[in-house]
Design a protein around this nucleic acid. Sequence first.
RNA 1: CGGGCUGUGGCGCAGUUUGGUUAGCGCGCUGCGUUCGGGACGCAGAGGUCCCCGGUUCAAAUCCGGGCAGCCCGACCA
Length: 491
Amino acid sequence: MGGNPPADRAPRTVDGVPQGAGSKGALTSRAADFPRWYQEVVARAELAENGPVRGTMVIRPWGYAIWERLQGALDRRIKEAGAQNAYFPLFIPESYLRLEAEHVEGFSPELAVVTHGGGKQLDEPVVVRPTSETVVNSFFAKWVQSHRDLPLLVNQWVNVVRWEMRTRLFLRTSEFLWQEGHTAHATEDEARAYALRILCDVYRATMLEVLAVPVLVGHKTARERFAGAVRSWACEAMMGDGKALQMGTSHELGQNFSRAFDIRFADEQGELQYAWQTSWGVSTRLVGALVMAHGDDFGLRLPPALAPLEVVVVAVRPDGEVLSVAGALAADLAAAGYRVRLDDRTDTGFGRRSIDWELKGVPVRVEVGPRDLAEGRVTVVTRHTRTKSTVPLAAAVPEVARVLATVADDLRAEADAFLAARTAEVATVQEAAEAAATGFARVPWSVVGAEGEELLGAHSVSVRCLQHPDGSLAEAGEPDDALVAVVGRAY
RNA sequence: CGGGCUGUGGCGCAGUUUGGUUAGCGCGCUGCGUUCGGGACGCAGAGGUCCCCGGUUCAAAUCCGGGCAGCCCGACCA
């Protein structure tokens, strides 16, 4: 797109990810023929395109298949935490948002408002949900009568719209797909515990175990808190360029919304009490995070759990024996339970096909060609390390299994090491601002404070979260004084 | 919304300063042939409202005015 530097003005980055064009490897000369290939293939062409409305994206089938697998992993954990899926309306009466003062103040600037319906002007405008606290709670008010109705734990997988001033492909689009959970509890402690359970057991666990992306957890400062929340907790990850990305948030809403929407229940003594609430969400941004945290110069690198295909068997030549052996091997892999595809498009060059699968991030490729077969062997290529090994045909399935078992751990270890190397422990706001130029800085909150936060803002640096020096979460009611602020440049 | 940059076949761009008639190039695409173990080559083709509207002019991709959209930097955010 316009404004991007031309190919001869390296180095370039796309969404902060270095582009590989011409930088290394056997493909150097060819890669130079594909300016902006990383963005082209991974972010824009393979996963997203611009739509007619500014700042939107199309998620292509390969990207969506990744999202579906991630969604499945999240949904399973959400249900394990006791929440059930439901669906609430897309259109919200504008008046609903006004019921919670901070909430409306926070979201008003970015609302998409519908003023006409059926060819007529509406008596009251409706907004396209930017988040659903207000609609959900309008129903909670009816559903919650007794302490026996609590806790009420619901989740929905929907799209939301936020007319952001500035959008960024995949990381901040004006429409996005997410999961939002809403709960009501009888006590503050229970609500808090639930918000933390989602934060740690659902979000952090999925990020570490499924995305293989390490995250820091903590709570937001007043400045960064969700509009309407008492306390916002977050998982923060570091992208390949050292910038921070908020991967997920879980909010303690206190009684703010229950008072606004009159969600009251009779407790065991028969006294009417306002419910204590939480809300929490993660979005398709996580797929963007996957690209930016693990992608390399050759495209995506996917943990097998999220890879739409774990292994591709590539028939190198249109040779009868090659095709039949490749087909049989693909069948064996499928029988062994792997998501596998046979690539027998021998009318397309071998190099082209190799690179296609590499860009897509398929963790393992098995190449079957006449030379291999002459020796009774096949070539197994590991995507994330770009290494090849040659094994006897009979050992192909176990070799694939062996390689697949290493991928997520390797990616995770690499990301862990990167995060550690780019995180500095500092003592002053000035040092924190400097360190944040390349990564995260951890600095005592007592030396930052609201003033220091302002100062950091002048360097485009913000406090991502507050945590104990050992990285653990603050206790209930614990003051922030003894906590450490994790600061960085955020997406 | 402020500052900077850009908009030309599917993609990436040149051409715009100093208007000039058939708007070029690379990649991709189609056909044929030769190739084929890391983005092949030859030949022959197809494909364009030069972002939109208006103006100046004998003549506008090019100059002027106004829109719209995108990218980068801020303020705001999953």
